[in-house]
Design a protein around this nucleic acid. Structure first.
Length: 576
DNA sequence: GCCGTTTTCGGCCCGACTGTTTTCAGTCG
């Protein structure tokens, strides 16, 4: 089991202990252990079996004992016992916004409610508001929460999860049978932020073992259908997987067809028709029926007399017209990123030191980075006091004298307070190299208030970048209510950049808004928002968004050479 | 459950917001 697996089990255990109303500090200890395991760069299983886990701050004998049990048996008996006491529906209820473990536990123990549907009934017929401490309003809010959950819960899979799962599946297939070519297709290949299901295209000379093999994959749950050229099943997480089987010579063509999008493909069908071809789901021929020779996907676009359209652009948002004219954007690739302008260290809520972040960034080939810990007001993330910030700036100053080949800017992720004012005063802000500002509080403000709040920060003349402009977290919460059209207009006017935050659960701005922003003349920064060295790699998800947003180097400030980037930064000082 | 010590027991991250209260509990970030 990998470290993330240990973290999941301990977190789940803590949740069940909370249902049981166990000692809150004990619960916190398990959650802390989960955090520690997740960030550990050594294998938890090995450490547990060697008896070395206890040496880590925060892990004692009880947790080491449990980790050892998990390492040798794959599960935790105490957790299995608790799961028998609470039906799965109880935990399910905590997914309703506004319902936490305490409420779930209460309604289960006091009303015998063990699922979302039962909770809905109790909120409607008045049983819920009859409980002490609950009222009409609470019942209403829970009903609203249930509606929202059902709306959101169309079960789309975040891209990062789809990546992990598809890689796991493809590795499994490769290691158990002869495969000519294999690829994730569909929305995953188009790098959409979420995927409805998982589509895998595989070509092989002998497809007969695939079906039987799939059932042996450790994530396999239920076979839905199993045919010669298509196998559909669900995983243990109830994700639908579609394995499409094709002959090796047909792989490039099927790669094109299964990548989609549907509407992109349909549009190409009619263009093919106009040019005297027949493009069908299973063939591409001339009018006389002679197959068009396709060595790779690009040959299809070539035959249709247009530029090759990368998968990320195949969404019918103007790509075909542009490809016909030869005016597709020159999309960014990872080498284009020269710096990362948003990252945290163990000075605030990150877990890696400044030095390790800097060296990791240098290893990624970056020419510059900014250290941007949280500012004072964000207590939960250990936001830096003014004194800590100046100490950090001194540390960075010293570090610069030892560094070669990478520029380290002193930055901050600055709280935009409830009323739109900024967390530090001008004297501090003017001493920083880079200021990114963001909202982490009072998410529930009405749209006009939230918009005015962000606009005020943009107009302050102090801010370089607005981070994660909508505040959404995929699968967990919608963004706050903000008029992005207004934000974009103001950002353009005041030359403030907007961020594509690459954190996989955020991907914020999304590609539609990022494209709109760039078209309105707003510069974009693609940042990792890393909280440890590993997470610097998240930048690839921001790149996915940027590619889907048609962005080019000119649009993205951290693809610029340091001199150009610094010239842009200095505009703030001139104006201030 | 973990830690630390002026050490074997007492303390352990915060703050806003909401709805229920009349002094607090639950949720969320």
């Amino acid at each position: 089991m990998d470290n993330a697996g240990f973290a999941t089990i301990f977190r789940e255990f803590a949740d069940y202990l909370e249902l049981k109303k166990d000692n809150p500090f004990k619960i916190r200890a398990y959650r802390r252990a989960a955090d520690i395991f997740e960030d550990l760069n050594r294998n938890v299983a090995e450490l547990a079996l060697d008896g070395e886990l206890k040496n880590i701050q925060g892990i004692g004998t009880a947790i080491e004992e449990k980790a050892r049990e998990i390492a040798s048996s794959g599960k935790l008996g105490a957790l299995e016992d608790l799961k028998l006491q609470y039906p799965p529906g109880v935990m399910e209820m905590t997914r309703i916004p506004g319902v936490g473990l305490k409420t779930a536990s209460r309604v289960f123990h006091e009303l015998g409610i063990a699922g979302i549907d039962q909770l809905e009934a109790a909120a409607e017929d008045g049983r819920l508001e009859a409980l002490p401490g609950m009222g009409k309003k609470t019942a209403e809010n829970i009903l609203k929460g249930i509606t929202r959950l059902r709306m959101e819960n169309t079960k789309r899979i975040p891209l990062v999860l789809a990546d992990r799962l598809s890689k796991n599946l493809m590795d499994f297939l490769r290691s158990h049978m002869e495969i000519c070519a294999i690829a994730a297709v569909g929305s995953l290949r188009r790098r959409k932020e979420t995927c409805g299901d998982l589509d895998i295209l595989v070509s092989t000379e002998d497809p007969s073992p695939i079906s039987g093999l799939m059932a042996k994959w450790n994530k396999f749950s239920n076979m839905i259908s199993s045919g010669e050229d298509r196998i559909i099943f669900t995983t243990t997480d109830d994700i639908e997987v579609d394995v499409i089987i094709t002959a090796p010579e047909k792989f490039p063509f099927d790669l094109f067809v299964t990548t989609g999008s549907k509407s992109h493909y349909t549009a190409l069908e009619s263009i093919a028709c106009e040019l005297g071809y027949r493009l069908r789901n299973n063939s591409f021929t001339s009018e006389s029926g002679k197959p068009v020779e396709i060595i790779d996907e690009a040959d299809i676009y070539k035959a249709l007399k247009m530029e090759y359209i990368p998968p990320e652009l195949r969404e019918m948002t103007g790509e075909i017209e542009a490809a016909l004219k030869g005016s597709l954007p020159k999309l960014l690739i990872s080498r284009d990123i020269r710096g990362d302008l948003h990252m945290h260290t163990n000075w605030s809520d990150g877990t890696s030191s400044i030095e390790s972040m800097v060296y990791a960034a240098k290893n990624l080939g970056y020419e510059y980075i900014a250290i941007t810990d949280h500012s004072e007001s964000l207590k939960i993330a250990k936001g830096l006091s003014k004194a800590e910030l100046s100490r950090q700036m001194e540390v960075l100053e010293r570090l610069r004298t030892e560094l070669d080949g990478i520029q380290v800017l002193s930055g901050i992720e600055l709280e935009i307070l409830k009323d739109g004012s900024l967390d530090y005063d001008d004297s501090i802000l003017s001493s920083l190299d880079l200021i990114i500002a963001s909202v982490h509080s009072a998410f529930g403000q009405p749209k006009d208030v939230m918009t005015a709040r962000i606009v005020k920060a943009i107009r302050s003349g102090r801010v370089d970048i607005i981070a994660h402009p909508t505040g959404r977290v995929l699968g967990r919460r919608f963004g706050y209510d903000v008029d992005l059209d207004v934000v974009i207009k103001e950002a353009a006017k005041h030359n403030v950049a907007l961020e594509i935050n690459s954190y996989p659960e955020r991907m914020d701005l999304d590609s539609t808004w990022a494209r709109k922003a760039a078209e309105s003349g707003v510069y974009i920064a693609i940042n990792s928002d890393a909280h440890n060295v590993e997470e610097l790699k998240f930048i690839s998800y921001g790149l996915d968004v940027a590619r889907r947003a048609w962005l080019e180097q000119a649009d993205v400030i951290n693809t610029w050479p340091i001199s150009k980037f610094q010239a842009w930064l200095s505009r703030r000082r001139i104006r201030a």
